[in-house]
């Protein structure tokens, strides 16, 4: 079914159960579980992303994850007394009557580029900020009791302003369960570095590989194509050590070794050591001399003005 030609622009995807109609604008992408389109609800102006599934069971499984994430986030936001309508990632799920009853769901359209394309366009100096936002999203996911599983640059969308969003929850599973979907390079088991049980460390490991891949793809490739018996974590640690940013290297080494207590600690450490140095510099910046003298000058002017005022 995955080889079906995509729907042309203008196709109306009408839901069987709820009756809503969506007009296809263009194809956004295809993956292992489905095809994603940019759509508008008929008669409305907002853009959405609509995913048409290849397999009813697989897609429903994904929808179930999104549904429970949604209610978890709603609870958390309610507690934080913050009503953010943008947070509803899943809008609805239905079957496309005219399209042979294929199942689909509608989600928020995440504008941007996949992480690797964003960084190759904007430069690796964005990694500190984008990485922090990504880690924060992962932390929120863990808080809701899920691991992402298939964490890789292709499944992270970054807006022009560095907002990072996870897409494709087809690999997400409850913490403690086996990881459903993974990609060789990013998989802890592939590197003989631990189990395939979904725990917070599994995502952090995949995140570390993601960083290595963004900063030294060739090195990672060489390490990955070794024979399975000789492929091991030492290779990854060695790669991390060759990075020029020593603080980042230490963070990655800890994540690869499974040394963080969880994503909360991993995020805080990232914030303090990899993200913060920049803001710290700004905070500590001494008031520039020109500003000081400008201030002195204005005081002087003020004094003279007052002098003239009182004289009159």
């Amino acid at each position: 079914m995955s080889s079906n030609p995509p729907y042309p622009a203008g196709t109306v995807v009408a839901g069987k159960w709820r009756g809503n109609r969506y007009v296809v604008e263009r194809l956004l992408g295809r993956g292992a579980n489905g095809t994603v389109y940019l759509v508008k609800r008929e008669g409305r102006r907002e853009w959405y992303a609509l995913k048409v599934g290849y397999d009813t069971l697989d897609l429903q499984s994904e929808i179930n994850v999104l549904t429970s994430l949604q209610s978890c986030r709603k609870r958390n936001e309610h507690r934080a007394r913050r009503e953010n309508p943008l947070s509803s990632f899943l809008l609805e799920a239905d079957d496309f009557v005219d399209g042979n009853n294929v199942p689909f769901y509608v989600m928020r359209y995440v504008q941007g580029k996949p992480l690797h394309l964003f960084l190759s366009k904007n430069g690796p100096s964005w990694l500190g900020l984008v990485g922090l936002k990504l880690l924060n999203n992962i932390r929120k996911l863990h808080e809701c009791g899920f691991v992402f599983g298939d964490l890789k640059p292709e499944n992270v969308m970054v807006s022009d302003y560095g907002e990072a969003e996870l897409i494709d929850f087809g690999g997400a599973s409850p913490i403690g369960r086996s990881v459903k979907q993974f990609t060789e390079w990013h998989d802890r088991g592939f590197w003989n570095a631990g189990s395939r049980t979904g725990d917070e460390g599994y995502d952090l490991f995949a995140f570390a590989i993601l960083c290595l891949r963004l900063l030294n793809e060739q090195g990672l490739k060489t390490a990955a194509t070794q024979l399975p018996q000789t492929r091991n974590v030492e290779e990854l640690l060695r790669l991390a050590r060759t990075l020029p940013d020593k603080k980042l290297a230490s963070w990655l080494i800890l994540a690869i070794k499974g040394g963080f207590s969880g994503s909360e600690q991993a995020m805080q450490t990232w914030k303090e050591h990899i993200y913060t140095p920049r803001t710290a510099k700004q905070e500590n910046i001494a008031t520039p001399r020109w500003l000081k003298s400008a201030f002195a000058l204005s005081l002087f002017v003020l004094a003279i003005t007052m002098f003239w005022l009182f004289r009159l």
């Binding site: 403690g176 369960r177 086996s178 990881v179 088991g189 592939f190 189990s195 395939r196 049980t197 979904g198 399975p228």
Partner: peptide
């Protein structure tokens, strides 16, 4: 590799 995946099952 298969054994590793199976081991992760509950």
């Amino acid at each position: 590799d298969l054994a590793l995946s199976l081991e992760a099952r509950e």
